[in-house]
């Protein structure tokens, strides 16, 4: 286990650039997120929201400044241990029609990092998957191939996978983009309750018109690779 600090995410003067691009996608970002808090990140297209989320998880590395996840520098090899405590819902989650993994299997695969060789899921983990699926209204889809689901249904599946892993931090990139109004309300409620009950952290990229805004502890606005307002920035 990595040494735990109070901060789940801590970005200190972070600059990130995509290779091949001479313009930084994120400039001098400072951000702290602690347990039990729900942080909403908003901003126009190309503002750097996805870049921020992926930097927190260490999928992108800063070329200046430092990024810590659960106190682990994202450049350290121990970052994997920190990531195991996180769940991620990527922005581009939609799978093509021929993708044949079933919904159940896809949610189960979220437990892969916790498993050693030849190990499969426990009874309890499967029960949890069932429970989360019912919570998100996808219990009837569990044995369907993912490719045959609608965009909104697929989005519920990735959110179910994220929640099933019992993460201590949730990183959700536009988790409402394909959901209908009921779905947006439901997911907002489920995620915020999860954050309160488990003292977890959630960083959610979303437009502030979504119902999640009423649960947000902090709203960070980004534009042009910079944080332009929000009480988390230094």
């Amino acid at each position: 286990m990595p040494p735990l600090e109070n901060d789940i995410v801590n970005l200190e003067g972070v600059w990130v650039a995509y290779s091949g691009s001479d313009r930084p996608a994120m400039r001098n970002i400072n951000l702290r997120v602690s347990a039990g808090k729900l942080t909403l990140i908003t901003g126009p297209n190309g503002a750097g929201k996805t870049t921020l989320l992926e930097t927190c998880l260490g999928l992108l590395k800063p070329y200046r400044g430092r990024a810590y996840l659960f106190g682990v520098d994202t450049r350290s090899w121990r970052i994997r241990e920190a990531r195991k405590m996180c769940s991620f819902v990527p922005q581009d989650f939609i799978k093509p029609p021929f993708e044949a993994y079933t919904v159940r299997r896809i949610i189960q695969l979220g437990f892969a990092p916790y498993k050693s060789i030849f190990e499969s899921l426990t009874e309890k983990e499967n029960e949890r998957i069932q429970w989360v699926s019912e919570l998100l209204g996808i219990e009837d889809l569990l044995d369907r191939p993912i490719g045959t689901l609608s965009g909104g249904q697929q989005q519920r599946v990735v959110i179910a996978r994220a929640l099933s892993r019992k993460p201590r931090a949730l990183f959700l990139d536009e988790p409402f983009s394909s959901l209908d109004r009921e779905g947006r309300k439901l997911v907002s409620k489920v995620v915020s309750e999860y954050v309160r009950k488990k003292d977890a952290a959630a960083i959610i990229v979303s437009h502030d018109v979504n119902p999640i805004i009423k649960y947000a502890d902090t709203i960070v606005r980004m534009d042009n690779g910079k944080i332009i307002s929000g009480d988390c920035y230094a």
Binding site: R83, K84, Y101, L109, A112
Partner: peptide
């Protein structure tokens, strides 16, 4: 399997 399904997601989850 997790990697066959989605490499980036697998990496983000600590695989």
């Amino acid at each position: 399997d997790s990697m066959l399904y989605d490499v980036k997601l697998a990496e983000a989850e600590g695989l």
